[in-house]
Design a protein around this nucleic acid. Structure first.
Length: 116
DNA sequence: CCCTTGACTATCT
DNA sequence: GAGATAGCCAAGG
């Protein structure tokens, strides 16, 4: 365990643990919030070293899809944890609860003119 | 040291 | 909008 990881992990874990239930953040966003811009990949590394208490499932890729290979066990595991918190996925993309912009509301309402 | 690897991202086709 | 490409940066061989 390098000195870098010791402080880095702590910062990352803190940010991730603060993610509200029903919401998600991308690896890049977490890295930025933790004070380590451009460290998205290292966030992922830190997650693998995480403890069970960490809500790691609330961290997804910048395009809002789960980072693991579709259909893999880790993928299904993360998806199950998200669904359990009320975060649904549409076409592999998580539907954000954060309706800051009135546009997501359209998604939350399951798109009137779209499929599904 | 140099090269490869990632639970990644932004950009261009 | 999906696929390819180039950055990204620490870790491990």
């Amino acid at each position: 365990m390098t000195a870098f990881q010791k402080s880095f992990d702590k910062s990352i874990w803190e940010v991730v643990s603060q993610i509200a239930v029903g919401r998600v953040m991308s690896y890049g966003e977490v890295a930025r919030a933790a004070g380590y811009p451009r460290h998205a990949r290292m966030v992922a590394r830190a997650m693998s070293r995480s403890e069970e208490k960490l809500p790691w499932h609330r961290v997804v890729k910048s395009d809002r899809t789960i980072a693991f290979e579709v259909g893999s066990e880790p993928y299904k595991k993360q998806q199950a944890l998200l669904l359990n918190e009320g975060v649904q996925l549409k076409e592999g993309k998580v539907i954000p609860i954060t309706s800051d912009k009135n546009r997501e509301l359209d998604e939350v309402l399951w798109g009137p003119s779209d499929d599904n």
